[in-house]
Computed example of a mutant assay.
Amino acid sequence: MAIVNRTPDSFYDRGATFALDRAIAAGEQAVAEGAAIVDVGGVPFAPGPPLPIEEEMARVVPVVRALAPLVAVSVDTFHPEVARAAIDAGAAMINDTTGLHDPRMADVVAAGGAALVIVHSLAAPRTQHPVPHYDDVIAEVAAFLSERRALALARGVPAERIVLDPGHDLNKNTRQSLELTRRLGELTALGSPLLVALSNKDFVGESLDRDRGDRLAGSLAAAVYCALQGARIVRAHNVRETVDALRMTEAILGWRAPAYLRHNMRPEGND
């Protein structure tokens, strides 16, 4: 899952794809580099003033329309009204980083036939959650995701269209995000596909003492580890590198055939 942020203040790209033409071009490039899903967002998760719903729609809907014929498009939003407009424009997935803070989101997704990503987070949208505490971060994340999935099911979202995301760094400190990563396999017992959004996050930077622009190696290590623990969708900024790391992992596990066979495959005596 590639990331395209139509925001002037996203934590990683700092507005590099805020302009419509750049956002569309970034999505097209992600598809060329192997992304199976492109996640389009118009509002950062980080605390900040609310953005009018109409403005968020104006940011994401044109990108959805442009990319939907090329790839499955996900929209990162917690507003049901934005989700409805995005699905009408061709979005195949809604990525709710507030974990159905507004239960109407499940109604919209069910009616529109899209898939739903339920993400664990604690705070109300765009607000701070200071010094988050968990007695057992995996158990509490699992309980939250299970409860919110039950809500989605009750409102008509089919089980096969639900994806769960433990929410690395979202209202969690670095030790908590590392424990989520280490014990991610325990969440596979929930039975839904797992998505992880690890790319260039602060827990990677704090673990390695690396600034935001120098976290690729750590992000790839975390992505591969999570894939081995059961993650089936990896949300990432650096698409080509992440695709290569995951395809290599798949090849080692026997899930993907090599692109070609040449080394030590020629009959003896032939050049």
Rank of each mutant, 00 (worst) to 15 (best):
P49Y: 01
L246M: 06
D209R: 10
A46C: 00
F45K: 02
I162L: 13
L220P: 03
T7K: 10
A159H: 14
T249C: 14
I3L: 01
F78L: 09
A83C: 11
R266V: 07
S199Q: 08
P49W: 01
L178C: 06
H168S: 09
N264A: 15
E81D: 15
V224C: 03
M265D: 12
G90N: 07
K172A: 10
R266H: 11
A152P: 02
L246C: 10
A25M: 03
V71K: 03
N238T: 11
I138D: 01
D209M: 04
R182D: 11
V31M: 06
E241S: 14
S10T: 10
L208Y: 05
P8T: 09
Y12C: 09
G113Y: 04
P132C: 01
K201V: 04
T181A: 11
A221S: 09
A221F: 09
L253A: 15
L145W: 07
T97A: 13
M1W: 06
E186Q: 14
V224I: 13
A231S: 04
V63R: 04
A36P: 00
P267F: 01
G42H: 12
V73K: 08
R148Y: 04
E241T: 08
Y260V: 09
G42S: 06
A83E: 09
L261F: 04
E268P: 11
L208D: 06
S177I: 06
V64M: 03
L198D: 03
P166K: 05
N270W: 12
E160L: 00
N270E: 14
P69L: 03
R183E: 15
L195Y: 05
G191P: 12
A26P: 06
D9Q: 00
E241M: 11
I118V: 14
T77Q: 11
V73E: 07
M265C: 12
N173R: 14
V61K: 08
S10I: 00
A36V: 11
L122M: 10
F203L: 02
A106V: 08
W255K: 14
A115F: 07
D76L: 10
H168D: 04
V38N: 03
P44V: 13
F144P: 10
R212G: 00
R262N: 05
V61E: 04
F18W: 08
R182T: 13
L51I: 15
L208Q: 05
Y260F: 14
P8W: 04
L178Y: 06
P52R: 00
H237S: 03
L180V: 07
A85W: 00
C226N: 13
A68V: 03
E140M: 08
F18T: 02
L122C: 02
N173M: 07
G218R: 01
G213H: 03
E179C: 10
L194R: 07
L195K: 02
A189M: 11
A222C: 12
D244I: 13
A85R: 13
A46T: 14
D202P: 04
A58N: 13
L67D: 02
W255I: 07
V82Y: 07
Y260T: 12
R126P: 12
A150E: 10
S219R: 01
E241P: 10
D102I: 02
A68K: 05
N238P: 02
Q229I: 08
L261E: 13
I24T: 02
M105S: 10
N5E: 02
R175W: 10
R232K: 14
K201S: 07
Y260C: 05
G48C: 11
V119G: 01
A91L: 09
D136C: 01
A58E: 15
